[in-house]
Design a protein around this nucleic acid. Structure first.
Lengths: 320, 320
DNA sequence: ATTTGAACTGAAACGCGTTTCATGCGCTAT
DNA sequence: ATAGCGCATGAAACGCGTTTCAGTTCAAAT
């Protein structure tokens, strides 16, 4: 394999000049530029990226941590990032954590070891304080509200989203309202929980643990929740459902069991995925693609931290 | 930032010894090992991965090219790869091509520039002959039948899968059979087309272009095909549908329009995703996760090429 | 007592591009 | 005429681990 020194020799110039040609720096005479280019073509020369990375100290790779890759919510988010990465000539390494801390740690270590120029954490399991230690190695961007503002972040105001959806259900006359989310202790889930508690209090409604469902991520989880719901004595009459897939699973099972939606059970999904449109599920639109783009841009801004909040929007259809 | 030479100086040993400690090589005295370790802890030393990559000529990164990331078929495939990558301590860089050749080219270039140790092409747009030129830079693995066997490959025998499903429909009495896939000219689609043609011929059925639908990838595409189907005069009575999401979209729209499935329209999906189970869609199970794992393993075998064929399996439910 | 070899250690070369610094040349401004 | 500046070019240092090779030490085998 030829390297830059070989080229220099063949073209009769110094390595500096070859490097200048490679990087389109000015101050190279037309004559030498051509000589270098000829030599490169002749020998089928190509740069060794690893050498460049070592030399420049950067890799043009951003790490992205998600709990699942095969999930529409994160899928859309990652799509947005990829789009942006393409534009900025960056690459993305995906870390699927399955909510395991070690996987998250791996990503952080890669940042530390200079294999990544930045890191986007779409879900954070690791402790705040520990995370702070890694900030010196490169920009870390979060997909949750950070308070105080120590990291760049882009997020959806889940408190707001939940509050609005709850009020909407209340206005429609529902009183036995519950919800159905993934983790109980994720940052987003806590916000939702808070919104729920505040809502109950404001409207003098009693909290009933039978109305909340956890560990829901995908279609099949929704289907299972619906089955569970069917067997409950004291059923909620309306549910906020963390994403449209889950809602679709519920609708599917309910249809099979001839449950009238929304009369017997009202549902509001989140994301506004295509499935929600075709199944006519009332949902809260989340601008995930744009959020992904924004997150990525922030990951490139090593110099300053910023925060972006994205506004959800309720879309009325047939399940409320 | 401290480097290996600093550590050597502090610990009073040579860089070779430090390197030996780092890589757990034998022949380091307990005493020196401890001195090195102490120095590393003291200075919070960590290796510079880029230097390692340059030095060793490998990166422990495998590139994976997919048309879409946010799609259950590729999602499952990638999940399998990630699982395997985790075990082998490799990382994955995802390339979403949207079927654009330039994106594929990018991935190939990264292989060429030694930024990737191997490349897995889940969908290939680039020409065979061109691909051959890149083989010298690292293992390239394909998710399609290669003939002659010039690349490692793992694939599903789509001809077989389609043939079986078609025979199944025929045995059930259907005669107006069509199908619904993504690209018209992908390697897999060609196999399916062939299976379809052979099936028609064998059973003396006439080919009707109204029975084939293209550009179907996701739920919403299925929904749209169903709408199109509704408006057709000459409708197929049974359809093979490239994946379960599409089938689910069709079922959803058909239900809304009170089309009796399978009486008016029979459907067979592919993948056996959870949605197929809950919507009781007859489907062909594809071992995508395992295939992903296999593909990944092959990408690590730089020395020899191999081929793995995965066997699909029909799962009867309610849509036929 | 001598050969053999395993255990241990370090110097130096290697992988390869980028960047800084010094220098030379030719032209313009004073 | 001369200081000053822009352009062009190369030498050398730099980023940092890995690996080979040569050598030393000490104990076991003959």
């Amino acid at each position: 394999m030829t390297n830059i020194r070989d080229i220099a020799k063949i073209a009769g110039v110094s390595v500096s000049t070859v490097s200048r040609v490679l990087n389109h720096h000015p101050y190279v005479s037309e004559e030498k530029r051509r000589a270098v280019e000829t030599a490169m073509i002749q020998t089928n020369y190509h740069q060794n990226m690893n050498a460049i990375h070592l030399s420049t100290g950067k890799t043009n790779i951003i790490g992205v941590v998600v709990p699942f890759t095969n999930h529409p919510y994160f899928g859309k988010l990652v799509e947005g990032m990829m789009e942006q990465a393409g534009q900025d000539n960056y690459k993305i390494i995906l870390f699927q954590t399955n909510y395991q801390l070690e996987r998250e740690q791996e990503a952080l270590d890669m940042l530390k070891y200079k294999q990544l120029d930045g890191l986007i954490l779409c879900s954070r399991g690791i402790d705040w304080k520990l995370l702070l230690d890694y900030q010196e190695y490169g920009p870390i961007v979060l997909a949750e509200k950070t308070n105080p503002q120590t990291f760049s972040a882009s997020y959806i105001d889940h408190y707001q989203a939940f509050s609005e959806a709850l009020s909407f259900l209340y206005a429609k006359g529902y009183r036995k309202i519950g919800y159905c989310v993934g983790r109980q202790n994720g940052a987003n889930s806590k916000q939702r929980w808070q919104a729920y508690q505040d809502f109950l209090e404001e409207n003098a409604l009693e909290y009933n643990p039978d109305y909340t469902y956890y560990d829901c991520y995908q279609f099949e989880d929704g289907a299972n929740v619906a089955l569970k719901w069917l067997e409950q004595k004291n059923r909620p009459e309306a549910l906020l459902v963390a994403n449209d897939q889950i809602a679709a699973g519920m609708v599917t099972v309910c249809q099979k069991h001839h449950i009238d939606i929304p009369r017997q059970l009202a549902l509001i999904g989140f994301d506004n995925q295509p499935i929600a449109k075709f199944m006519e599920i009332t949902t809260v639109q989340l601008p995930l693609f744009q959020m992904g783009q924004q997150l990525f841009q922030q990951a490139l801004q090593a110099d300053h931290i910023s925060e972006h909040q994205f506004v959800p929007k309720l879309i009325e259809r047939q399940t409320v």
